[in-house]
Each structure stands twice: as C-alpha cells, then as structure tokens.
C-alpha cells in the first residue's frame, strides 16, 4: 500500500518528541530524587556517637516533653560538653568557630510538616511514643535523615492503632489542621 508517511511519523518529529519526553521524564525523576535526599547541614552532627555515649534525645531537644516544638540546641548547650572534650575533628572545629563568633548554627530541620499541620510533641511524648517511632533509627544516623511518607495516612494509621477508642478525637480535622 502506497501511503504517504504522516508528518508525525517522520524521523525528526519523533526524535524531537522523544527528547522533550526525556527531558520531562528526567526532570520529574530528578525532582523526586532531589526531594528525597537530606539537605546539607552546617555541621555533620553524628547522632550515632551521641546516642552511643548515652545522651538522651530530650537532653538536646528538651522541649519535646512539654512543648509543641522539640527545639534545636543552642551553641551553649553544645559547648557545655565540648568545652571539656579535647578530641579534635574538623566538625568540632566548625562548632568552636560558631561559639567563638557567638553565631547560631544554621541547622536545617528535616522532620518538618507543612504550615497547615499543627503538630505538638508534648501529647505524643506524654503518651509514651518513643522518638524513634517517627524519627527513625536516629541512633544509627549521623545527620538526621528525613523519614519518607510521613503523610496524613501515616498519622491516622498510628492514631488508629495506638488509640482505637480515642480515634474519633484523634481523627478530627481540628486535631492537626486549623
């Protein structure tokens, strides 16, 4: 059958189309990938070492026990111990630098929720939820890593499993959104 090739079957068009698709697809993939890698921290803080040395989570993040935000330790807290510790490492040098300049360390929190989610640590700590339940195995991490899929279903799933009798309250929209 002698049929003229339609324009959309011509080679150039197809290559161009493939390129466009490739760019779009690649962009999407890399976008998703980039969104999953942890951000760069000013100091590669080794949680692992500190937990191994017996530091409690609430020593550095004390407000988790009584407030909505766990809080990030100020340099005074770091320096309280590290003044005594003589071990030299490049990361500790950085800390010393911040202390010397009396500058706050520009941490980048990874366990974050959008603005419209009003999370409060206190009731969760009061209910006896271990930090690792949500923040992952921090005792094996250096810098804290974002935990994937911390979405609404994940919250609700835990609320339902842990407090089935209280689920009406714990699934109320106003529990987290206002």
């Amino acid at each position: 059958m002698q049929v003229k090739k339609p324009w959309w079957q011509s080679g150039g068009v197809r290559i161009a189309l493939a390129l466009v698709l490739l760019i779009l697809f690649g962009g999407a993939v890399s976008g998703i990938y980039l969104s999953q890698i942890p951000p760069e921290q000013p100091i590669a803080f080794p949680h692992k070492t500190h937990v191994a040395l017996g530091a409690q989570c609430t020593y550095c993040h004390p407000a988790a026990a009584w407030g909505p935000n766990a809080g990030l330790p100020g340099i005074s807290k770091c320096w309280g111990c590290h003044q005594q510790v003589q071990k030299k490492s490049p990361e500790l040098e950085k800390l010393a630098g911040y202390v010397q300049r009396n500058e706050p360390i520009p941490w980048v929190p990874v366990a974050i929720q959008p603005d419209f989610v009003k999370f409060n640590h206190q009731p969760h700590v009061q209910a006896g939820i271990a930090c690792e339940t949500c923040h992952g195995p921090v005792s094996q991490m250096t810098v804290a890593l974002p935990q994937p899929r911390q979405n609404m279903g994940w919250c609700l799933d835990c609320h339902q499993r842990m407090r089935p009798n209280d689920f009406v309250r714990l699934s109320d929209c106003a529990t987290c959104h206002y």
Binding site: P39, G74, P104, W107
Partner: peptide
Amino acid sequence: RYVVRRPYT
C-alpha cells in the same frame, strides 16, 4: 520546604 533555622545561642 527545607528552611534554615537559627536557634538561640
């Protein structure tokens, strides 16, 4: 959504 936070010194 990552933002830098500066804790109190």
